[in-house]
Write a protein that binds this DNA or RNA. Structure first.
Lengths: 242, 242
DNA sequence: CGCAAAAGTTAGGATATCCTAATTTTATTT
DNA sequence: AAATAAAATTAGGATATCCTAACTTTTGCG
C-alpha cells in the first residue's frame, strides 16, 4: 500500500466544510440575490454566475441533496441554515480580503473585487481573521458592503438607491455596487464613494438625468448608474418638500 | 444568444498562461525534483504530489502535448523553456506569499507553507508583486528558499546539508525543508533556523546522532533531521582538521 | 380559460483530473 | 542471458462541472 489514505475528493478550497469553489459561488450568489431568505429563481443564479440555466438545475439539485439548499423543481431555491452559514462565511472572506487589499496593499478599489473573487476560495479562516485584525476589524468593505462577523452576523439594512431619492433631498452614500471596474473608476472620479454626502438638485422626467451636488460640484448621472448607488437620507436638509 | 462568449475552460487560476492549479503543481514539483534541468521520473512526481503513478503518466502526456514538458515514454520528463518559466512563476508566487504571510501578518513559520500552497494558484501577479514590494523584496522565503525574480531568475546554489558536515566544522544554516510543520516547530525550538550559526561537535557512527552547538546550547539530532537542514560552511573555524 | 411565451428541466455530451487493475518496458541480479 | 524485480504505462472507470438541444411546466394575457 502506498502512503496514507487520500481524501475522496481533491478539494481546492480551505473551507471547513470542504466546499469547492463553484459550490461557494452558488451559495454566495443565492444569498446575494435573495438577501439570505427569499426564494431565488434558478435563471437568476445562472445569469449572475454567467452559466447556462441547465447547469444551474443540475447543481442546485446536488446542493439540495447535500442539505445546503431547499429546492422544489420549477419553484426556485432557498438557503438552508447550513447553506446560509456557508454563504456568509464566503461573503465574509470576500469582503475582508477586499478591505485588506485596499487598506494594507493600496489596491485600487476597482480591482479588489476580481482578486477577492479568486482568493476567497483559497484563503483559510485563520488568514482571513489575521487580515481583519491587521486592518482593525472594519465593518464594511471598500464599496461599503457590510462584513459579516466571524459568527455569521451581518447588517441586513436595506438602503434606498440614489435613483429613489427625490429632488431636494440630501443623503450620504453608504454603498456602491462592486463588480464593474469601469463604473467604479467613474464613480470615484465623480467622488461618489461611501461616506460622500450628496444633494439631489433635480431629476429630469422619463428616466432622465439626475443632477447632484457632490463635494461642492454639480454633476448629472443617468438613472442606471444612480440605481447602483445606495444611500442613507440625511434628516437635516433644508428643502425636503416634495 | 446569451451574454458574451465564455472561456472554453473555466480556470481557477490567475496565471497569465491560464494554467490550472494541478498543472502548476506538476510543473513546480518537476522543477523542484529535477532542479529545473535534470530529467525526472514519473514515479517521483507521483510520490511528491501524493498521486497514483498512473495519474502522472496521463498528465505528463498532456503537458508534453501542450509544450510544457519534454517526455519520452518510460524515460522521464524534462521541463521545456516554457514549462520552466511557468514553474518558476509558481515558485515565486509561493515563496513571496510565504514571506508576506510571515512578515506582514506574523504567520507562524510552520503554517505558511500550506496556506501558500493554496494561494499560489489564486493570487495574481499584481498581488504577488505588491506583496513583495510591501515587505521590501526579500531574497528568500521564511525557510531560506530563494525567491525567483519577476523575470524568472533564481539562485540555484546547491548547499551541503548538516548531515554532510564533519565534526569540528562550523556553518551557517541557509535553508530548511519547508513542508513538515511539526519538524519546523521542532527546528525552531532548537534555534536551527536560517541564519543560525552552528558547530558540529561530534558525530556518532552508524547513522548515529549528530551533536551540535547552536546559539550556545549543545544538542543532538538524528541524521534524518540533519539532512533537511542546508548549510554554508564557515571558513573561519578553528578545528577543521579531519 | 386556453394558449403562447417565459422559465426551468431532462437528456446526452465534453473536459480535467484522479483511481485501480492489468500489462509492458526497463533494470538488476545471478 | 534468463529470470525477477522495479518502474511506468494503458485500459477502463469515477466525479465535478459545464454545455447545447429538446422537452415540460408555469405564467400571463387576450
Amino acid at each position: 500500500m502506498k502512503g496514507g489514505k487520500r481524501a475522496s475528493l481533491r478539494l481546492e478550497t480551505a473551507s471547513p466544510e470542504g466546499l469547492t469553489g463553484p459550490v461557494e459561488d452558488y451559495l454566495k450568489a443565492i444569498y446575494e440575490i435573495g438577501r439570505g431568505t427569499i426564494s431565488v429563481a434558478t435563471n437568476d443564479i445562472a445569469q449572475r454566475l454567467d452559466l447556462a440555466p441547465a447547469s444551474v438545475s443540475g447543481m442546485v439539485r446536488r446542493l439540495a441533496d447535500q442539505g445546503l439548499l431547499g429546492y422544489e423543481r420549477y419553484r426556485g431555491v432557498t438557503l438552508t441554515e447550513s447553506g446560509r452559514r456557508a454563504a456568509l462565511r464566503t461573503i465574509r472572506r470576500h469582503r475582508v480580503i477586499e478591505a485588506y487589499l485596499s487598506r494594507a496593499l493600496a489596491y485600487p478599489w476597482d480591482r479588489v473585487h476580481d482578486e477577492a473573487e479568486r482568493l476567497e476560495h483559497a484563503a483559510s479562516d485563520e488568514l482571513v481573521d489575521r487580515m481583519a485584525t491587521a486592518i482593525g476589524e472594519p465593518a464594511v468593505d471598500p464599496h461599503g458592503a457590510p462584513i459579516p462577523s466571524r459568527e455569521g452576523l451581518v447588517d441586513e439594512t436595506i438602503y434606498l438607491s440614489l435613483a429613489d431619492l427625490g429632488a431636494g433631498y440630501g443623503a450620504r452614500v453608504v454603498r456602491v455596487s462592486d463588480d464593474d471596474p469601469e463604473m467604479l473608476r467613474y464613480l470615484a472620479e465623480l467622488a461618489i464613494v461611501p461616506g460622500a454626502e450628496i444633494v439631489v438638485i433635480s431629476r429630469a422626467p422619463y428616466e432622465g438625468p439626475i443632477t447632484l451636488r457632490v463635494a461642492g460640484n454639480l454633476l448629472s448621472i443617468g438613472p442606471a448608474l444612480a440605481s447602483q448607488v445606495m444611500v442613507e437620507p440625511l434628516a437635516d436638509m433644508d428643502a425636503p418638500a416634495h
